[in-house]
Simulated scan of single mutants.
Amino acid sequence: MAVEWISKKMIIGNGKTKTSEDFIFSKGTMNEHFVGIQAFLSKYKGDSHHCVGELGIEFKSSLKDGNIIQVELTQTLNDASSHALDTTESWVQVVVIAQMNMTDSNVSFGNIGMTGEQYKTKVDEFQENLISVSACLGSFHSHFFSSSNKLVDHNINSIGASCSAEPQNRSALLNANILIKQNAETVSTTKRLDLNIIRIATGLNAGLAMRTVHFTSGKAGVAHLNSTKEVEFDFEVVSAIALITGFEMKYEGADTHNVGTIMVGASKWDNTKYLSGSADINGANPAIKIDKKKVTITSNASMFEMSNSTKTKNESDSNKVTYLIIAIP
C-alpha cells in the first residue's frame, strides 16, 4: 500500500465561475482518493469590502485515467448586490491524497456529506476495531436566504467551519458544523459540508501517522500571520502535508463589519500580498518544513474589512485554525 499526495494552487481565472486541474499520480492502480484544503484566500475585487451573503469552496473529483484525478473547483464569495469573488486573486491550495496499488490495507478513506448547522453521525465500516480515525474539511458552502429563498446579506461577526472524528470500537463518531454569523439571532440559513475521513484499523502497519495541531490568536489588532508550530513523529519523516480540519475568524466582541479578504491555511505571508507564496513550486511546499522526525507548519488566518495591506482596518481579533498533519516515513 502506498499513500501519495499532490498539492496545487488552483485559481479560477478572469471571466470564469469554475476551473479544473489534473492531479497526476505514479503509475498503477488507484484504489481510493479524497480532496482536501491546505489553504485558501477569498476576496472581493480590488480593495473593496462588502456584506457577505454566500461563502463556499466546492470540489467535484473524478478518476480521469488509472492514475489521474481531475478536480473541479467552484469558489464563491458574494453579496446580494452582485459584488462577487475576485477570481484572479482568490485561490485554493488543493490537496489530493490517494492510495495506490493497495492489495491489503488497514487504512481506508471516506467522504461524508452534511447539511445543517450541527452534524453528528456514527459510521460503522470495519470488521476490526479502529485504532485511529481523523477528519478534515472537503467542500463547504453556506449562505443567507430569505423566507422567499432569495439571497440576502449581512455585516458579519464571525465565519467558521470545523469537523472532528473519534474511534468507538469498530465505529467512527463524526462531528461537524459550519456557520456565518452576524449575531445570535442572525446566522446563515443554508449549510453544506463534506468531511474526508481517514480510518486506521488494528492489524497491519498503516505506513503513515497523523497528528492534530491548533493555532489561535486572540489579541485585538494582532493578525495570525506566519505563526509556526512544530510536530514530532516517532519516525524520520519523508513527506508531510497539512489539511484544514477547522477554522474561525471573529471580529472583536459583538462587532459586525463588511469583509474584504478572508485567508486561512498552511501558507506563507510575504508582506506584499495576503497569503501569496503558498503554491507548490517544483515540489517545494514553503509552509511545511521537515527536519528528521520534526515537521514545522507555518499558518495564517485573518479576516479584513479592507483588503489592501496598507489600509487594513477592522481586522478579526480572534483567529483559530486546526490542521491534520499526515506524515509518511
Rank of each mutant, 00 (worst) to 15 (best):
I24M: 04
I24C: 01
S26D: 09
G28E: 03
T29G: 11
N31Q: 12
H33Q: 02
F34H: 02
F34A: 00
V35D: 01
V35A: 03
G36A: 15
I37L: 09
F40Q: 04
F40G: 04
K43T: 07
Y44F: 15
K45V: 11
K45C: 06
K45D: 04
G46P: 10
D47Y: 11
D47W: 10
S48A: 10
H50L: 14
V52D: 01
G56M: 08
E58M: 14
K60E: 11
K60V: 12
S61G: 11
K64G: 04
K64R: 14
D65L: 06
D65E: 10
G66P: 05
N67V: 12
I69Q: 02
Q70F: 02
V71L: 00
E72A: 02
L73F: 05
T74W: 03
T76A: 06
T76I: 08
N78M: 03
D79T: 08
A80W: 07
S81I: 13
S81A: 10
L85P: 00
D86S: 09
T87E: 01
T87K: 00
T87I: 06
T88D: 15
W91M: 14
Q93H: 08
V94P: 00
V95D: 00
V96L: 11
A98N: 05
Q99A: 06
N101F: 06
M102H: 07
T103G: 12
S105T: 01
N106R: 03
S108G: 08
S108I: 13
F109S: 11
F109W: 07
G110Y: 02
G110F: 10
G110Q: 10
N111L: 12
I112V: 14
M114L: 10
E117A: 07
Q118H: 14
Y119P: 00
Y119V: 07
K120G: 07
K120E: 15
T121N: 14
T121M: 13
T121C: 13
T121G: 05
K122Y: 15
V123L: 09
D124G: 09
E125W: 03
F126A: 01
E128A: 14
E128D: 11
